[in-house]
Design a binder for these strands. Sequence first.
RNA 1: GCGGGCGUGGCGGAAUUGGCAGACGCGCAGGAUUUAGGAUCCUGUGGGGAGACUCGUGGGGGUUCAAAUCCCCCCGCCCGCACCA
Length: 835
Amino acid sequence: MKEYNPLELEPKWQDYWEKNEFHRTGSDPQKDKYYVLEMFPYPSGKLHMGHMRVYSIGDVLARFLKMKGFNVLHPMGWDAFGLPAENAARQRGADPSAWTASNIAAMKEQQKALGLSYDWDREVTTCQPDYYRWNQWLFLLFYKHGLAYKKKSPVNWCPSCGTVLANEQVVNGGCWRCGSEVTSRELEQWFLRITDYADRLLEDLSLLEGWPHRVRIMQENWIGRSYGTDITFKVKDMDEDLTVFTTRPDTLFGVTYMVLAPEHPLVEKLIAGKPQEEEIKKFIREMKRESELARTSAETEKIGLFTGGTAINPINGEEFPILVGNYVLMSYGTGAVMGVPAHDQRDFMLAQRYNIPIRVVVNSPEQDLTAAPLAEAYEGSGRLVNSGEFNGMDNIKAGEAITKWLEEKGRGGYRVRYRLRDWLISRQRYWGTPIPIIYCPKCGALPVPEDDLPILLPLGIDLAESQQSPLVEHREFFETTCPGCGGKARRETDTMDTFFCSSWYYLRYADPHQDKLPFSREKADYWLPVDQYIGGIEHAVLHLLYSRFFTKFLKDHGLVDAAEPFQRLLAQGMVYKDGAKMSKSKGNVVSPDEIIERFGADTGRLFILFAAPPEKDLDWNDQGVEGCHRFLRRVWRLFQQCMPLFSIPKSAGNSAKGIFTGLGAEAEKLQRTLHETIKRVTIDIEERFNFNTAISAIMELVNAFFAYFNEVKEKDSSDTAPFLTDALEKLLMVLAPFAPHITEELWHLSGHRDTSIHAQPWPAFNTEVLKVDEVEIVFQVNGKVRGRLQVPTDSSEEELLEIAKGHEKVRAYLEGKTIIKTITVPGKLVNIVVR
RNA sequence: GCGGGCGUGGCGGAAUUGGCAGACGCGCAGGAUUUAGGAUCCUGUGGGGAGACUCGUGGGGGUUCAAAUCCCCCCGCCCGCACCA
């Protein structure tokens, strides 16, 4: 037998699996289905360690579940539209389409070199017309149901990417992709009405028990539902109403001013012809220029300028000034807030600054707040004062009573508001799905008829010339006829956000060659939901929220039955080295290629799974990799030593149901370790997702084999050969999902010429074997360990106690003391409490 | 500020239900083998102590026969949200 040479044997088995179509999706009607999915990558051209980690996790699951007897769907594809292809085109004169295709080829090569068990027959590539035509089809479905609409509004603009961004794609005031500071622009853009689904997206989070808690919390925060009251004020001397949203209707009598967002439509009317008109216009212009980050930072000082307008409190007819302020956001609530300085700290600070009256209307039960000027706002609960007929009421009850009063007078009522805003999906870019809309000078905006799909993205375009999307200047693309009147018309030249593509790709995998629909209902219903989704936490409120929205929308329109797309979610941790994220600038990058070349894919996979549990961050350690390589070589050597065993003819032997009887004590022990290992590995993979402990269990088994052979010198004894070869095969089986190549090689070398180890049924453990005659019991006195002893497993509590009392060390501690209590835990310990 | 998470040897990490803290791996030390190195194998490896023992899971307190695990307070680190009315 040769030395372990992964470079030679890994490609050999990869070819073997491919030729035998070993990774085809199962379709046995007798079996249950299991859908394992890793987030598909952007085809940057190179795999990094993060990819290697997420794919290794998914591959272990897929291979394990296949051995467990499931029909497994384990697909891979490419999130292939997006800006980097365009940038490469501009910088290097590459063609985005060709650039993307060659990147895909390179990454696919690397994935194959990792031995990943994807069904490439189901590969999905979003930049190909057979995929993106269904983006267009789905867009039209949204449009038909009024969920896709065009609106002029202030939007987030990334100057570096030259396009607008959705709110979810603005991170700390910067672009999620390039980090440039995002500015505000007033543009007409396409939106998807995700806010219609806000309630369901929030409520159904409770169905997602298999999701990490923090991801659910993040989505909950992002949706940001709050219950409150709308209150409509009259504007003095004008025929205008002004509505605010508040969560504290109980403080209505404490209102001493009102603040509008600079973009609020009423501002212009209020200042028209007033002395402060120019000053306020200048302020508004400044605000519009400032980034949202600067404007909404908690550190930014609150500014409130008097507009000259006066509002009237509906509840008591009181009049107070209307201000315009930097801290009020047009995009939340009504873009107007009532100022209650006594009971809101922000309002308090503004009131102090501008000498606005501060009136207490909720009194603290601890201290009379009306006695002296407040030092800060009182945001707690209490009873109402200075509030007319509501005086003396508990403030929660008063809030309800005041809302009821407003409802009766037609001046307000309960209202639910969300932080979530509609999803802006149009992008001023070339490399994306064209939005299927036509603008006709006569008929307006019309959807492209379904039969005309797909609207193809023109290829072979020179991008180097223009700064803007070349579609805007590409006559052959935008010139068209109106589907309504047949006259000359212009196509929409914006393309879709790439998150549109990734919001439903998991459905396409169920039916990837379907050409009548995005996917057939039957196939989608068989495979959906994804049983286990694996990916990075960075998509907590982007991709994962959008996909949930899509699935709910598709369910509502009868395309799929699933209410949620992803049953369980595993957010894998990041890969670090030397305490820092791997990055070119830090020079601490280790590439998967490098590892494959030096140690082989099996070693790399094993290390990345062994170094930390999947959801935790992982610190790359070269010596740790070597340790894993050493382990595989040890496995190899074990088989090398044992090869003669496999040539001993197999008699029926003394085994029944995989249990061997009549073995010597050493072999008996090894058999027990084997079954313990099978049990631990099974539970660790399928219940706990702790691959690190599964691998450590396998290492212990290998150590046990060596210990056995150290103890028993006759390695080729024909008595134990049937047991040993069976045990060695089972060792290979439990190791197979982690290290698929070496196990396949050893499987074949040990005589299985016509089968693959990955097609073997997962070994079962036998509880009979796990039973032991003797177990070690710990003896404690006053909770401290004073001795331990092997005792028969079936010892009664009384017997255990007697043995404990008879133990030499224990006896010494009992000397001259009174036993006041004893605790016996069978199979574990005896604790004697003395005084 | 609000919300969530984490804190265990020199290092990565185990400890599944409150029941032997430190599995497994790395590193380190000693030994075997080897011309040598490497590789491999064996042994040891939380701190203190010659030892009986004793201390020990960020710190302090509590519940319990028994706490890394449960409760309270504090410290540190990480993540998310952050003027959301």
